[in-house]
Amino acid sequence: MEAVSVVSRKYAPHEIEGDIKTELMHKESRFTELILEKVLLFAGISSILLIGLIFIFLFKEAVLFFKTGHWLDLIGRWVYDEWEGKRIFKIMWQSVSLEPKYSLIPLFCGSFLVAFPATIISAVIGIGCAIFLSEIASPRLREVLKPTLELLAGIPSVVVGFVMLAMVATFVQNIFHTHFRLNAFIGAIGVALVTLPIIITISEDALRAVPKELRDASYALGATKWQTVFQTVIPAAISGISAAVILGFGRALGETMIVVMATGNAALVTGNIFSSVRTMTANIAAELGSVAQGSEHYYALFLVGAVLFAVTFLLNMVSELVLNKMRRNLRM
């Protein structure tokens, strides 16, 4: 725009008629330019807007839970037990009952029992893969391997869940002789498959961002390939790798279809990885379809969603900050 105005000013004294014409055209085009910029600005802020709307609409409904419920209900509820003949403190999620109980503890247990092992599995395998791709594989081999990994990332999670449910679950039960066919461990394997591409991609980026000079210096001091990897490259890329693992953990917490299909969906308070569990995500997926809008149960489900969103949002922010810091450090 500036370039154009310079041109027109230069020609102005000699060609007055032409100048008026260009001025007019300018005004018109400047107006369209302005409108277009505003439209594009709206598109530009759409993602900020959407994140904000998700925040508002989750928490708006979630807060309404406290209209009828007490915050202690989220841990447990005193209920008269007919068998015991006395009132006991029950820590359970039992939404369809005379005295509905909305304890989040079993859901936390479930989410953690799936996401934590899944992250460990995919972190070990993923970092191994990333080291191979960035340090050992030739550029040619990498060009073949990376698109194949993208295909893994492209498998819909419902398909992974189906494979776990229909094939892997029975296979694993026959090996470990577990009581439940569908349990947290099956879910964790499935979720690990989904988080694997994320961890590989980000930690490989971090490893490759380590300057070649550092590696050369290490070799010049007589270090071997793997000594260089463990004592130079990984320490230099450790923030990127940890960001990858944090992001992977966030994805594992948020994975829905695999856990709904493969973990058995029994809301138990347990630490046993071979037990059926119900995660926060699976709980929403299983119950939101059959709930009356505006009921306490409905708000409780939004509350679960709000907690889940807050946790994953924090994890995403942390990994984003760590990655930004690493990029800035490496640029220097």
Binding site: S47, F57, S157, T256, M317, E320
Partner: peptide, 17 residues
């Protein structure tokens, strides 16, 4: 940051939204 965060929002949250 918002775009990256949006990419990391659990899919079931989109269902609730």
């Amino acid at each position: 940051a918002a775009v990256n965060n949006l990419a990391g929002v659990p899919s079931i949250i989109f269902g609730l939204f």
